[in-house]
Amino acid sequence: MPVEIPKDTWSGSVCTVTLGATTAAGGTRSHTVTVGGHKTLPFMHFEQPMAHRPVIALEIRDRRPDDWSPLLLEVWGNAVDDPASWANAGEKAGADLLVLSLSLTGADGHPTTPEAAVAAVKAVLKASGLPLLVFAPGQADLDNQLLVPVAEATKGERLVLGICEDKNYRTIVATAMANGHLISTRTPMDVNLAKQLNILVRDMGIPADRILMDPTTGALGYGIEYGYSVMERLRLAALQGDGNTQSPMIVTPGAEAWKAKEAKVGQDVPAAWGDWRERAITWETLTAVALIESGADIVVLRHPESLRRVRVASDDLMAVPETI
């Protein structure tokens, strides 16, 4: 019985966004990373080839993150005390991109200064040739104080500046446009809010090929289903031609999974949870792979072994013979 396989045809496609700029293009990156461009749902190779594979970013910090799980501090060792070494280690672990998250305060307890932020960003750029995303601590005034000098000091690098939110996007968008960078928007797990913020930033005139959107996810067990479905809906809308959902999607399964008690702690937990390290890595890996399959273009991870496993999975998802 001959079976005719139904193929979806779509009128819309996901924007193609290139992160980082090489020397030739006015930056200092060793190479660039391009995401997006999809004309169909993730990994449906029999309909359209995947324009760009999903990429894995590794999150590093400007200083030792005191609240991170001991498993993470242990695996990165002394690198966590120096963003440049951490960046190096991350590149060696196989990351495609680096995310530098700036801390709210310095080790002295005072708010992070613009000078310190610029220094950390420059150190990371010097240590690794990977394209870089810089995320501010998430407090409107401080974010703007830190990101503007960072953007100015790295003009032309095509960094991704984050995070633009509904209540605080104007300054970040303006400085990204003025200094040749990209932005990342973030909205709390809602299709409409994601679209709305996309419209707001585009109303300021930033071109679509400079926008990444983070629709936010919960970790496995902590609301992953909402993030998962929001991303599926956004991707479907993008393919159906809704111009305000066509930005490539970035999510942070690493940060979410490692916030979960299941990953973070190894003591005073039920025996039925099993081995701590393996459970934690599985937590991060499954969160990330589920999101990649629902449409994530960039997943931000924290543990090198999860990174390796997600890489194996994404290679497998990409390596599909055309006969299938």
Binding site: I224, E262, A272, W273, G274, R279, L286
Partner: peptide, 20 residues
């Protein structure tokens, strides 16, 4: 059969099959 693998999968199954 390893709890550290089964537990995440059981949780994922609950999550995905939650009525949206």
């Amino acid at each position: 059969f390893a709890p550290e693998m089964i537990y995440p999968l059981l949780v994922l199954r609950e999550n995905i099959f939650t009525d949206p």
